[in-house]
Design a protein around this nucleic acid. Structure first.
Lengths: 177, 177
DNA sequence: TTTAATATGGACCTTTCAGTCCATATTTAG
DNA sequence: CTAAATATGGACTGAAAGGTCCATATTAAA
C-alpha cells in the first residue's frame, strides 16, 4: 500500500512489491492472485483506515469546525518529512485511472463516498454547533470539502509550500460560513 | 500530447505515440530524442495553448467574473463527449510524478504559475468591476482558484456528474465574494 | 513417525518496454 | 544530372515487465 501510495500503480513494479513484502513470487501469487488484485485490496484498506481515523478525529474534536479546519490545514504538514507529497491514494488513483478500469473506478468512487460521509457528519455537527449556517446544504458542502482536499493535495504534489497550503485552506474554510 | 493527456506518461507506450504520429521509430528519435523529451515539449505546448486560450476568453468576457464562473463551470462539460474526464495535463503530471523528476516538476510548477497568472488578472479585474471585494488578496484567490480547478477535475475523474460539478463550483465561487 | 497439506524459492515463459543501428529512399542544392 | 544531406523503414538489442510452474521445504495432523 505504501508503494502504490508513493508511486502509483503502473510505476510500482512487482519486484518492488516483493522486496518490500519480503515475499517470493510464488507466495505472492498464491496469497494475492495478481498485482491488480493486491492493488484493489490496498485501496480498500487505505479507505477504511483513513476514514476510520478521520471519524475518530471528528469524535475527539471539541467542535466539528476544529476538525474540518484541522483536516484542511493538515495537508500543509504533508509537504515535509519522509512521506512528503504522496497525496491521497484514492484521489491519486482517480487521477491515474480515471474511468478506464471499471473495477478500480468503483473502488475510487466508494473511497470518495466514504470521505464525503465523514465530512457530511462534520458539517451537520458544525451546523448544530452554530459554526456553519443551517441553511447551507450539508451534502453540497461535504462535496466541496472533498474537492478542496483533493485540490490542496495536488497543489502539494505540484510543489506548493506549507504556508501557501495553509493560506488557501483558509479561503476554503471561509466559504462554509 | 493528446495521448499523454488522456493516459499519462507511463501508461502511454512509444508504440502508441508512433502510431498516432504516423512516424517510424528512427524518425521519432531523430526528431524528439526520447519519449521523456517529447513529454516535456508536450507539457510546454499544453501550458502555452491553454493559458493563451484562457487569456483570450478573459479578454472577450464582458465581466471578469463571468470568465471565472465560466471556467469553473466548464469542468462540468468535461464529463461528457469524446475526450471526457481526461483532466488537465499539468495537474495530471503533478499527480503522476510529484517531485520525483526534477525536470518534470519544474515544468509542472511553470504550468501552475501560468494558470495562476491568468486567474490573478481575472480576480484583479473582477475587483475593479466591483464583483470581488478589493480587500481580498488577489494572489491568494488566484491560488484558491487553481486549487479548485484541480480539485473539480479530479472529482470528474472520480466519476462525479456534471450537475455535481456545477453545484460545487457554485460553492467555490461563493468564497470570492 | 508417517502422511497429508501448505508454503516457498527459483527457474522459466511470453510479451512489451524504450532505444540503437544501418541500409535504402527521398529530397535539396549546385 | 550529380552529389550531398536528410528522412525513413525495419531489423535488432538488452532489460524489465507480469505471470506460471514445479520440485523442495516446512508445517500440522494422525
Amino acid at each position: 500500500m505504501q508503494l502504490f501510495w508513493r508511486q502509483g500503480y503502473e510505476a510500482t513494479s512487482l519486484q518492488e512489491l516483493l522486496d518490500e513484502m519480503r515475499l517470493s513470487k510464488s507466495s505472492f501469487y498464491q496469497a494475492f492472485g495478481s498485482k491488480h488484485a493486491l492493488f484493489g485490496r490496498c485501496i480498500d484498506r487505505y479507505r477504511d483506515s483513513l476514514a476510520s481515523g478521520m471519524q475518530q478525529q471528528l469524535e475527539a474534536a471539541p467542535r466539528a469546525w476544529d476538525f474540518i479546519a484541522g483536516i484542511l490545514n493538515s495537508v500543509a504538514g504533508e509537504t515535509q518529512g519522509e512521506d512528503a507529497r504522496r497525496g491521497c491514494l484514492v484521489m491519486n488513483t482517480a487521477s491515474e485511472f480515471g474511468q478506464s478500469d471499471a473495477e478500480v473506478a468503483a473502488r475510487v468512487k466508494a473511497g470518495a463516498a466514504r470521505f464525503r460521509k465523514v465530512f457530511l457528519q462534520a458539517v451537520k455537527r458544525a451546523q448544530a454547533e452554530g459554526d456553519i449556517p443551517t441553511e447551507r446544504d450539508p451534502g453540497l458542502l461535504a462535496d466541496y470539502l472533498v474537492t478542496n482536499m483533493s485540490g490542496l493535495r495536488t497543489l502539494t504534489k505540484a510543489g506548493a509550500s506549507a504556508a501557501a497550503i495553509r493560506r488557501i485552506a483558509g479561503v476554503t474554510l471561509s466559504a462554509l460560513r
